[in-house]
């Protein structure tokens, strides 16, 4: 039996993974908070009339800059996440963490490619049909773009589910209540996100749940140290 309490390369790798996953969660919290703040701003922009050009321009600039910041933060968060799960995989604590690493690495890349493909196909259809965009979209009933969008959304959700389960497992192993609570909230937010997107409603709630989940995970990963499996440490 290994002595989990003393330093080992495995424990070092796990703690390094925790730190990186914490960084990822912190950045994701910031990115989600910015996205949540942008959501009502976009609605305000839709209501501003052409007469308020100066206000409109300021708002557009604000949204563009904030959107860019949120995107950069998301990217950084994703990089930390991949590195964090790579550390966890390297620790050989669980084979499932290697599956998680693969999921968080490949899932978002393929998902974004699918969604971009959907946008491209839809744009081509709009050009080919020659109608106004509102007409084409209103009469739109599935087809290749919808399939690509849906596949992208589901792939992203799947990667997040695998990660959520892995964090839940980590929380149970270390008896870190915040990680357990964070992982459950994260899983809830993962389920809520595609539903909100398809319904065109509940985006506010979805954003709020994401922020809560990432905050819990950030604090959870910050406080948790690997001291061996919980049942063995007792």
């Amino acid at each position: 039996m290994w002595d989990w309490g003393s330093y080992s390369p495995m424990a070092g790798s796990i703690d390094k993974g925790f730190k990186r996953l914490r960084n990822s969660a912190v950045l994701a919290t910031a990115s989600s908070a910015i996205s949540a703040a942008l959501f009502p701003l976009e609605r305000v922009m839709g209501r501003l009339s052409a007469g308020l050009l100066a206000e409109l321009l300021v708002l557009v600039g604000l949204i563009a800059v904030a959107g860019l910041v949120a995107l950069v933060l998301s990217l950084a968060s994703w990089i930390y996440k991949v590195l964090g799960w790579s550390d966890m995989c390297r620790s050989r604590l669980r084979r499932f963490y290697c599956i998680t690493r693969l999921a968080v690495l490949v899932g978002p890349i393929v998902a974004v490619a699918l969604i971009m493909g959907g946008v491209a196909v839809l744009s081509l259809e709009l050009l080919a049909k020659g109608g106004t965009p509102s007409l084409v979209l209103r009469n739109y009933r599935g087809g290749a773009p919808a399939g690509l969008f849906l596949a992208g959304l589901l792939l992203l959700a799947s990667a997040n589910v695998i990660e959520g389960v892995a964090i839940l497992d980590l929380g149970l192993l270390t008896r870190a209540k915040l990680l357990v609570a964070g992982s459950i909230t994260y899983l809830l937010s993962t389920g809520l996100s595609p539903v909100a997107m398809l319904l065109g409603r509940l985006e506010g709630l979805s954003n709020l749940v994401s922020i809560v989940a990432y905050t819990l995970l950030a604090v959870g990963f910050h406080k948790t140290r690997w001291e061996g499996e919980a049942h063995e440490a007792e």
Partner: peptide, 30 residues
């Protein structure tokens, strides 16, 4: 508490199936 590797995979697949079903149902309804 230590879950087995199998139960982690099963839990993930179960949750993915639930989310996928809900999403597809919603997409069809929409």
């Amino acid at each position: 508490m230590r879950l087995s590797e199998r139960s982690l995979v099963a839990m993930s697949l179960g949750l993915i199936a639930v989310i996928a079903s809900a999403t597809l149902l919603l997409a069809t309804f929409r």
